[in-house]
Amino acid sequence: MLICFFLETLGKGCTFIAVLLVVLQWTSEAARPLERKVAAVGSSVLLSAPDNIKDINFIQWEYLNGNISDFIVQYYVGSLEPTIYTHYGDRVVFYSTNGSLLLEKLQETDSGVYKASINLIESEARTTFLKVLRPVSQPQIWSNSSLAGSPIELFCNVPERTVENIDWEKEGGPLPQERCYLLSENDSVLHIGKGEKSDCGFYSCNVSNDISWQESSLNLIIVGISPPLEHALKMSAVALVFALVSGMGFFVLCCQSGKQRIKGETWRWMIIFIQGLVCVSCILLFAATVLWMQEEGQRVILDSAAPGAVILVVLFASLLLQKIYKLQDRGCSQTVDLTGYAVTSAVISLLGLLTLFIWYHRSQGDQRENKRHSKEEAHQEVQQELGEDMLQRP
C-alpha cells in the first residue's frame, strides 16, 4: 500500500514538473528580445542569426505572417548550396559562415517578422521585426483664408500611409502658448480661431517617419480687409479727390474778379467738367457704400437708412416744390394741381400699412389660439393619465 502511494505521488510530481518545464519554455520564448529594424523601399537589410550555438548542423530562415510561415532559406552544414525558395530567389543572399541573411530590393510587403532557427531549437531562435517604409514626400501647405477676424485653417497635405509624425512650428520654434491653436485628429490641419495680427509669420509643417523627413513653410499674412472693402477704399479715395477738386473749381469760379472772369465757351466747359467730376465722385461713393454694406455695415445701414431717408426726402422734396413753384410763377398758365397725386399716394401707403397691421394681429391671434389648444390637450392628457392610475390601483 505504501508502494502504491509512493508511485501515485511520484506520478503527480512528474506531471507537475512537465507542466512547469512547458511553462518555463513558453516564458523563455516570450522573454526573447525581438530585434527591430527599419529600412527604405528598394534598399537592403542584413538579418542576423543566433550566435550562441556552437555545434551548428542546420539553419532555417522563415517569414512569419500571423499563423502562416513562409520558408526563405534552409541550409544543412556540409551541403554545397543552401535551399532558397523561389519567392525570394533573386533577392536573398545567404552567408553560410554565420547564418546571416541579406534581403535586397525591399518592398513594403516585406514588412513582418523574420525568424532564424539553428538545429530547430525553438528556445534559441532569433526573431527580427522588419518594417519597410517609403520615404516621405514633400508636403504641400496652404491656408483656406487670411482675413482678420475669420477662422483660418492651415493644411499640410501628405500621403498618410508614408507619414508617421506631423509637427507644426512657427518662426522655427514651437507654436506660441499664448494663442489657442487646435490640431485635427491626425495633426494635418492647424486651426486658428480668429485671425489676428499676432498670427502673422512663417508656419512650418514637418512630416517624418523612421527613415526620412521633409518640411514645407508658408508665410501667413493676415489681411485686415477683404478684396471688396479694398476696392471700396480705393473708390472712396478717388471720390474724395474728385470732390475736393470740384470744390476748388467752384471756389475759383466764384472768387474771380470782374475783369479776369472766365466767360463764354471756356466758362461753360469748366462748369461741365466740374459737374462731371461731382457726378463721378457720387457714383464712386455710392458703389463704395454698397460694397461696405455687403461686407460689414449692412445692419448699421439698414437700421438707420429709413429714418435718415425720411428726413432727406422731406427736406429735398420741400426744396424742390418751393423752387419749382417759383419757376411756375414766371408764366400765366394754370398751376399744376397736386391734390389728386397726394391723395392717391396717401391712400396707397395707408392701405399698405393697414394691411400689415391686420396681418400682424391675425398672426398673433392664431398663435394665442394654438397655445390655448396645446394647453388644453396637455391638461386632458394629464387627466387621462390620472384616471388610468386610479383604475390600476387596487
Results as ranks from 00 to 15, higher is better:
Thr128Tyr: 08
Tyr88Asp: 02
Phe94Lys: 09
Thr128Met: 04
Ser100Phe: 09
Glu104Ser: 14
Thr97Cys: 03
Ser100Arg: 03
Glu122His: 11
Phe94Val: 11
Asn98Ala: 01
Tyr88Val: 08
Ser145Trp: 07
Leu130Tyr: 03
Lys115Phe: 02
Phe94Tyr: 15
Gln107Lys: 15
Ala148Met: 11
Ser145Gln: 09
Phe129Ser: 13
Val113Asp: 07
Pro135His: 13
Glu104Trp: 01
Gln138Asn: 11
Ser143Val: 08
Thr97Lys: 12
Ile141Thr: 05
Thr97Ser: 15
Glu81Ala: 10
Val93Ser: 13
Val132Phe: 07
Ile121Gly: 00
Gly89Pro: 00
Gln140Val: 13
Val136Leu: 10
Thr128Phe: 07
Thr97Glu: 13
Lys115Arg: 15
Ser150Val: 13
Ile84Phe: 06
Thr109Leu: 14
Val92Tyr: 06
Pro135Ile: 13
Pro82Met: 02
Tyr88Ile: 03
Ile118Lys: 04
Thr127Ala: 14
Leu101Gln: 09
Asp90Trp: 05
Val132Ile: 12
Gly112Gln: 06
Trp142Ala: 01
Lys131Asn: 10
Glu122Asn: 12
Arg91Met: 09
Thr128Gln: 05
Gln107Ile: 10
Glu81Pro: 00
Leu101Met: 09
Val136Ser: 06
Phe129Arg: 13
Leu130Gln: 05
Leu102Arg: 14
Lys131Leu: 10
Gln140Arg: 10
Ser150Lys: 13
Leu147His: 08
Thr83Arg: 09
Lys115Tyr: 03
Leu103Ala: 12
His87Lys: 14
Ser143Leu: 00
Leu133Pro: 05
Asn98His: 09
Phe94Met: 08
Trp142Arg: 00
Arg91Asp: 12
Ser123Gly: 11
Ser96Gly: 02
Thr127Glu: 15
Arg134Tyr: 14
Ser117Phe: 02
Leu103Lys: 10
Ile141Val: 13
Pro135Val: 15
Asp110Val: 08
Arg126Trp: 06
Arg91Ile: 15
Leu102Ser: 11
Pro135Ala: 14
Asn119Gly: 07
Gln138Phe: 01
Tyr95Phe: 15
Ile118His: 01
Ser145Lys: 08
Gly149Trp: 03
Lys105Leu: 12
Ile121Tyr: 02
Ser117Pro: 01
His87Phe: 09
Gly99Gln: 06
Ser145Asp: 12
Pro151Val: 07
Ser143Pro: 00
Val93Glu: 09
Leu133Asn: 08
Leu147Lys: 09
Pro135Arg: 15
Ser143Asp: 00
Leu102His: 11
Leu101Lys: 09
Asp90His: 11
Asp90Cys: 05
Ser111Ile: 04
Leu130Ile: 04
Asn98Gly: 01
Tyr88Cys: 03
Val136Pro: 07
Glu108Gln: 14
Leu106Glu: 07
Thr83Lys: 10
Ile141Trp: 00
Ser137Val: 15
Tyr114Met: 04
Leu130Asp: 05
Leu102Gly: 01
Gly112Trp: 07
Arg134Gln: 15
Glu124Ser: 11
Glu122Ser: 14
